[in-house]
Amino acid sequence: MRQVKVGIIGCGGIANGKHMPALSKLKHVEMVAFCDIVEEKALKAAEEFGVEEAKVYTDYKELLKDKTIEVIHVCTPNKSHSFITIDALENGKHVMCEKPMAKTAKEARQMVEAAKSTGNKLTIGYQNRFRSDSEYLHKVCDNGDLGEIYFAKAHAIRRRAVPTWGVFLNEEEQGGGPLIDIGTHALDLTLWMMDNHKPKMVVGKAYAKLKDQRETGNAWGDWNPEEYTVEDSAFGFIQMENGATIFLESSWALNTLETGEAKTTLCGTKAGADMKDGLRVNGVKYNAQYVEKPALSAKGVDFYDGKKESAGDREARLWIEAVVEDKEPVVKPEEAMAVTEILEAIYKSSETGQPVMLGE
C-alpha cells in the first residue's frame, strides 16, 4: 500500500488519545504536519508522532497549502469542525472529522455539500461502530435476523462523569453537553443498526439541574458551576419517516444506577438485542423464549487473549484503506448529518416546548 501523508489539526485530548496513536500504528501512514492554536501542543505532537521533518503550524490554513498532504484529521472543538473541514476538502484533502459532525445541522449540510462538490472523501469519528460487539450486531441486523426494527433506545448515561478539562462545559465552543458529546455516539450506533437515517419528528428536553452543585463526587473532580454553560442531561423521542421510534437518553450527571454509554437496544418483529450485559440477542424459537450471548472475547488458547485491534485503531485503518483503495468510508457523511439534525432538534424542542418536524 502506498504511503499516505496526514496532517493533524487540533492536538488536544482526542488527537492524543485516539487519532495519532492509531495512525502511528499504520506503516503506510506518515504524519507530516501538526497544527494547534497553542504551539506547544503541536510541537509535542510532532515530536511524539511525526516524521523527522514534520512541520508545525498555529494557522490551519497554512498547513492546508501543503499539496503533499492527502488526508486531514480535524480534532478541534465542535465550533470549528465545519469551516476547517470545508476548507480542507476545497484544498483537495480527504477529511476525517471528529464527532459530532458540527454544532448545527446547517453546518453539517454544508460539509456534505463540500464533499460532494469536491469529490473528496469525508467521514466522522464514530469509533464505536468498530467495536467487536457493534460489528457483530450490525451483521445480525443487516442479515434481517431481527426483522423490522421498529423501536430502539440509544443509551449514553453517566452517573457522575462530567469532563472538566478543555472546553467541554462551554456551550459556545461545543454547542451542548452530554447530548452532543456522548449522546451522539449512542444515536449514531442506533441509526446505523436500524439502517434508518430519515427522521420525521423530534420531541426533547435538556436539563441543567445538577450543574450548580458542589462536592459532586465527579470522576474527574468537582466542576466549576460558573464555567458550566451546557446541560447535564438530555432526553429525546424520535419518530422516523417509516414509523419507527427511538428514545435517546444522555447524561454526564444523573442520579441513577442504570449507567452505560455508546449502547443500543433494538426491538424487531423477529427478535431483539441489547448491550446491557454484553451483547445479547433475544427472541422466541421452538415456542420458547431464548437469550443468546455471542462469545466475542473467547481466548481459544492460553497464550492468546483474543484481543483484536481497538475500535479506534480499526477506525483509522479502515479509513486510510478507503482513501487508498477509493472506497466509501464506513461512516458516511450523510449518516452523520442525520445525527446532527436530530441532536439540534432535541435542543430546539427543549427551548420551545414544541415538537420539531424534520425531513419536510
Rank of each mutant, 00 (worst) to 15 (best):
K153L: 04
W165L: 13
W220T: 04
Q174S: 06
P225T: 02
A152C: 10
K209M: 09
G175Q: 12
R131L: 12
F237M: 14
I149T: 08
A234N: 05
G177H: 02
K211R: 15
H155N: 12
S233Q: 05
R158Y: 13
N143F: 01
P225Q: 01
H138K: 11
E135V: 08
F130E: 06
T190D: 04
K205E: 07
D212H: 14
P163C: 05
A152T: 06
R131E: 05
A206V: 06
N242I: 01
A244T: 09
A206S: 12
N128Q: 06
F130G: 02
P225M: 08
E135P: 00
N242F: 04
G147W: 02
Y126D: 13
L137P: 00
G144S: 11
F235T: 13
Y207R: 11
G175D: 05
G176C: 04
D133M: 05
Q239P: 00
S117H: 07
A156M: 13
N120C: 03
P225H: 03
G243M: 08
T216M: 03
M240H: 08
L169W: 01
C141H: 12
D145R: 12
M240Q: 13
W223P: 08
N120L: 01
M201L: 15
K205R: 13
Q127Y: 07
N143M: 11
E215T: 03
Y207H: 14
A161N: 06
A244C: 07
T123V: 05
K116W: 00
I246H: 08
V162I: 14
A219R: 15
L187N: 07
D212R: 10
L210I: 04
V202W: 02
I238F: 00
V203M: 14
D232N: 09
